[in-house]
């Protein structure tokens, strides 16, 4: 019990620290790296509450794909982040207002939960009791049976999205060197090697 409490506070503290660093660091690459650490901490929190499938998805999708993509974009695009930050103070009032409203709402939710826990939780526990050992298995059991049609149809939608992205952006550029494996395999000694007579002291022209 005490161990899970320690783990929770450790993950939560790291998560909040990471979130603060993501928006305050000057170097965008460092920001993205702390974002990744933040995702990992959030995944840890998910494991602690028993949502191991969400935790794995968070690591695989957000860390493995989204954050790495962010990193690529940040590294490859030449954005002047110092210039972008110059409008920071102009947006501060609106940003602060949104932050204050958000904080007030959070306090309201916590206040209701603390003052009347019976009323807030009357609808029953948020997590239904599963017939299986873990929720990964529970999702797997319906995904490929009950929702097989939707799963496959969603796959077709993604295929169309991929074709669409290629159709709308890909341009055949002339003069691009491509690897031609058949040509490489079909190379013979005659086409690949040339014997030259080297005269002593003369070199090769």
């Amino acid at each position: 019990m005490i161990l899970s409490a320690i783990a929770f506070y450790a993950f939560a503290a790291v998560l909040i620290a990471c979130a603060a660093l993501v928006i305050s660091l000057r170097n965008p690459v460092h920001s993205v790296l702390f974002l990744i650490l933040g995702f990992f901490s959030a995944a840890g929190l998910f494991v602690l509450v028993g949502a191991e499938f969400l935790a794995m998805i968070l690591v695989i999708v957000y860390v493995g794909a989204v954050a790495v993509l962010f990193l690529f974009v940040v590294m490859m695009m030449d954005i002047n982040f110092v210039q972008m930050r110059q409008g920071f103070t102009d947006y501060l009032p609106v940003g602060a207002l949104v932050g204050i409203v958000l904080l007030a709402e959070l306090l309201l939710v916590v206040g209701v939960l603390v003052s009347a826990p019976d009323g807030a939780l009357a609808a029953g526990p948020a997590v239904p009791t599963l017939g299986t050992e873990n929720n990964t298995q529970a999702i797997g059991e319906v995904l490929y049976t009950r929702y097989l049609y939707l799963f496959q149809a969603a796959g077709m939608v993604l295929l169309v999205a991929m074709i669409g992205a290629i159709v709308l952006t890909h341009r055949a550029r002339p003069g691009v060197r491509r690897q031609r494996i058949a040509d490489q395999v079909g190379r013979t000694r005659a086409s690949g090697v040339e014997l030259k007579k080297v005269t002593p002291g003369g070199g090769i022209s």
Binding site: L150, A153, M156, V157, V160, I163, V167
Partner: peptide, 23 residues
């Protein structure tokens, strides 16, 4: 309604691309 939506999106997404085909 789930299969309705997925079918509709499959259709629409392909049509969006076709509309912009002469990019």
């Amino acid at each position: 309604f789930l299969s309705l939506y997925v079918g509709l999106e499959l259709q629409s997404l392909a049509l969006y691309v076709l509309a912009a085909f002469r990019r």
